[in-house]
Computed example of a mutant assay.
Amino acid sequence: MLVLCLGCRMWLTLIYSCISGAALLYALYRWVIPTAVQYHGGLALIWHDVIVERMLDTLTQSTRPQRLLNAVQKNATRGDPRSVVKAIDDFCRHKEWAMNVGDEKGCILDSVVSEINPAAVLELGTYCGYSTVRIARLLPPHAKLITLEFNPDFAAIARQVIAWAGLEEKVQLVEGASGDWIPKMKEQFGITTFDLVFLDHWKDRYLPDTKLMEECGLLRKGSVLLADNVICPGTPDYLEYIRSSPRYESRYFKSHLEYTKVEDGLEKSVFKG
């Protein structure tokens, strides 16, 4: 009987240890580490965009964009862009971080779009279509938004998000490299110039693509470039060029990296010709 009791105690101790360990790991994953990286850009990106994403991809046998789309289809009303934006923001704040422009910087994006009231918009970097929906829902009738996405898997998800928002008629999603498509804009899409360009793709492409748009005559006097993530991860060569060039008048909008407390912002640059 004594041996049996000792064996039971050992098993109970082992079970309690496993439960305690699991609870500790869950607390670290769910609250402690996310809180700790809230104020450090590099750590936040490594944690959310590398460690957590790969772990969840393995556990769920799906991708983050697929999980984001599922959240939209489950929680957003079809044909209602605002509900699509809200569903993605809720998913990213409470379930799983994603590299959208986010709700805080999204309000700045909204204000710029509303101020310009553009008829022709180019977005560089679609990802899952969050900023595409934010922009397209504010465009006037007959306006056109062309959005470029290099990754075909992202593009496939973005098409479904855009369709769920009911904005297919306003959006032309093009797959491929920005450097390949920018010189073909006039010929392929009948674009003379863009009123607004939103840069949110590979950060090392901001500067070469801006110069390419200049060379191709896609910017007119008064065209606005709005660049995301200019502080985190950062685009120092772009900022140096855009702020020192007499061809632009620039203003920095201080904010935070999407869904964190890390400083980031948007750079709005008006082309002066």
Rank of each mutant, 00 (worst) to 15 (best):
F194I: 06
A143K: 05
E215T: 10
W181K: 12
T147M: 04
P140L: 03
G190K: 01
I191L: 10
E215G: 10
M213N: 09
G217L: 06
L145F: 03
I191C: 11
L173F: 01
F198E: 05
V171H: 06
E168R: 10
P183I: 04
Y206S: 07
T210E: 00
D204T: 07
F198G: 07
T192W: 03
G217R: 08
M185R: 13
A155P: 08
Y206E: 03
R159M: 13
L219D: 03
Q172F: 03
G190N: 06
M213Q: 08
P208G: 11
F198K: 02
G176R: 05
K203I: 05
D180F: 00
K170I: 06
A156N: 07
W164Q: 15
A156S: 11
R205Y: 00
L145S: 13
P208S: 09
D195T: 02
A177L: 07
G166V: 04
L196W: 06
T192H: 10
L148E: 02
D195Q: 04
P141E: 14
D209G: 04
Q188C: 12
Q160G: 13
E149K: 06
G190L: 05
G176L: 10
A143T: 01
D153S: 14
G176C: 09
P140D: 05
T147P: 04
E168Y: 00
R205E: 01
F198W: 04
D195I: 02
F189H: 11
D204P: 01
I162V: 15
I162G: 10
K186A: 15
L148M: 09
A165L: 11
L212Q: 14
D204G: 06
D180Q: 07
A177V: 08
F154N: 13
K186I: 01
A158I: 03
Q188W: 07
K170A: 15
N151T: 09
P141M: 08
L218T: 04
V171P: 09
D153T: 11
E169Y: 02
I146A: 12
F194M: 06
R220H: 15
L207S: 05
D180S: 10
F150C: 13
S178W: 00
K170V: 09
L173I: 14
Q188K: 15
G217N: 09
D153A: 15
A165W: 01
Q188N: 15
W164N: 15
K186D: 01
A165G: 14
K203F: 03
E214D: 01
K170M: 12
Q160L: 11
T210M: 02
D200C: 07
I191M: 12
V174W: 00
E215V: 03
A156W: 00
M185S: 12
F150E: 14
L167H: 08
K211F: 02
A158F: 01
L219C: 12
K186G: 13
W164Y: 08
D209R: 00
V161L: 12
V171T: 09
W164V: 09
D180R: 03
E187Q: 14
F194N: 10
D195W: 00
H142L: 12
V197S: 08
C216G: 03
L167V: 14
V161A: 13
A163G: 14
I157S: 07
A158P: 00
L148W: 02
K211W: 01
G217V: 06
